[in-house]
């Protein structure tokens, strides 16, 4: 499913993460690591947001060559999303919905289940961090992705929203065949999700546990 080869990410000649060869099969996977270990950098690179050295393929689609086809299949929810505070979440989500070619009513259904539709027409600057996080989580489920990366999905959101996220992950995995990469330094509830593999991100490398 996801193939990462000769991956190297550096900032100002300082190596952040290096992956020689990592093959990730379909399923739900958990990336664990302390703050600053490089989990978000890896996710952002896979999402095509950050440049990197090496090759990342998803279902044989190259992140940098098949830019449109790849991005239709790979979605990301950022750990600490930062959006323009003068826009409303509705402006932003409509843009993402259109770009991701999401089916009709998918946005409304997701917004209703996460309770985002109650505030999404107000400027983002008026949201709490949890409300912003839910916008980011919602955006990751839009379209017809085959891989969704949720970076620290459980931080800042309330218990009810945590349950909804668990249910969404389960539903997308079981009924739509979507794979997940989840990152967290907290423990997930294994009884709720069928975690296939666990990867440890530390010492600038990724190792399967």
């Amino acid at each position: 499913m996801l193939s990462i080869k000769n991956f190297l990410k550096s900032y100002n000649n300082h190596k952040i993460l290096e992956v020689q060869d990592l093959q990730i099969p379909e399923g739900i996977h958990w990336f664990k690591g302390i703050n600053g270990s490089g989990k978000s950098t890896l996710f952002r690179s896979i999402a095509g947001i950050l440049p990197y050295q090496g090759q990342i393929l998803f279902n044989n689609l190259d992140c940098r060559k098949d830019v449109v086809a790849y991005r239709l299949l790979v979605n990301l929810s950022e750990a600490e999303p930062l959006y323009p505070d003068y826009l409303s979440a509705y402006d932003l989500l409509k843009f993402i919905t259109e770009a991701k070619k999401a089916p009709v009513d998918q946005l409304n259904t997701l917004a209703e289940s996460l309770g985002v539709n109650k505030y999404w027409k107000s400027p983002i600057g008026t949201y709490s961090s949890g409300m912003q996080k839910k916008i980011s989580l919602l955006s990751a489920f839009l379209g017809t992705p085959k891989l969704i990366m949720l970076d620290e999905p459980l931080i800042t959101i309330d218990d009810r929203s945590v349950q909804i996220v668990y249910e969404l992950v389960k539903d997308y995995y079981e009924n739509r065949g979507v794979s997940f990469l989840l990152s967290s330094h907290q423990d997930f509830r294994f009884e709720k999700l069928a975690i296939k593999n666990m990867y440890l991100v530390q010492n600038q490398a990724v190792t399967q546990q």
């Binding site: 999402a47 095509g48 947001i49 830019v67 449109v68 086809a69 790849y70 991005r71 239709l72 790979v74 979605n75 990301l76 950022e78 999303p81 930062l82 959006y83 323009p84 843009f95 993402i96 770009a99 991701k100 070619k101 955006s139």
Partner: peptide, 17 residues
């Protein structure tokens, strides 16, 4: 600056050149 600070997610969107 705006794109990279507040709209980085746009790089993940399947938009053609």
């Amino acid at each position: 600056y705006f794109e990279n600070r507040f709209l980085l997610i746009a790089k993940n969107l399947p938009l053609s050149h």
